[in-house]
Amino acid sequence: MLTTRFAATVRRSALALLAGATVLAGTAVAADDKIKVGALRFTSHSASFIAFEKGYFKEAGLDVEFVYFQAAAPMAVAIASGDIDYGVTAITGGLINLADKDAIKIIGGALHEEEGIDGSAILVSDAAFKDGVTSPAKLAGRSFGITQTGSSFHYMASRIAEREGIAMSEIKLKPLQKVGAIIGALKSGQIDAWAIVPHIAKALARGGAVHIIGWVNDYAPDYQVTTVFTSAENAANKRDLTERFLAAFSRGAADFNAALVDKTAGEDAAEATVRLIHKYVYTSRPYEKAAPSIRNGAMRLNEGARLNLSSVQAQLDWFKAEGLVKGEIGIDKLVDGSYVETY
């Protein structure tokens, strides 16, 4: 008992350092369950923002405090350390390895690629485009920007290569750590290609410095881009709390889809939703400039936080094949499928 208590304390403090999280205060109401939710200031995290602003969390008896991160990987670490309770982010090698150590579990789905809705685009630099790289089939021998080995960008690149019959050894992956660095390298022609969410892709393509040559959806159909995850402890022992969180989160996702993806809620609702999201995303830009980016970035969030298990399985298999995670980890260790519908 003493040892586990000690271990938990050590783990918490050690991982808190790793995570380097910044805590922003939310509102405090005594009666509700206090939870901390990790978020990136991206449009894809809108479900949480909407659920908070419209009071869905409160109605579920949750007092939510957002903790903001700069990248996906530290968020997984912060969940493992217990610094945050729930998070939404892409499946990374780090996340899988933490799941392997019984620290975290995927409990639902969020952003995913869907046919008919503009998803992540495949971009090439102007120089590469003029050099004849006008379709993903011609990426052999070209360089492709990724943040890190084992990131979602790496996964997308390998999916494209596989479908086009290009050996991965023929695509030169360039790890550049940050999205900003990749954008700079692509604009200046230091790398040839990249794949990125639509609002960034469209904004870049409008400038003329890069060209869209294809869509990720054609190569990784129904790609489960981001998932909802929590600590293994929460998933196993706090069922009620977790269910309430997922329910409120799903209401936010439904509102988002209705307002900006399916556009069934009408223009007024769309406008109101964009204004709401602007409180969290692109806050440094005036509303007029932020609004188109937010609308452009609207990709489908899973209804009811459904999870595309076959896509998760495919990603897990790929991580194993690449040797980025240990071979023995199974999908059961990564995913707790008892909370939401999986398909």
Partner: peptide, 21 residues
């Protein structure tokens, strides 16, 4: 080795860190 390095001890450490290995 943060920028565009496929091989290198630094790149290896960075990758291990991002994979939590």
């Amino acid at each position: 080795e943060m920028i565009g390095a496929e091989f290198g001890v630094g790149a290896y450490i960075l990758l291990a860190g991002s994979l939590m290995a």
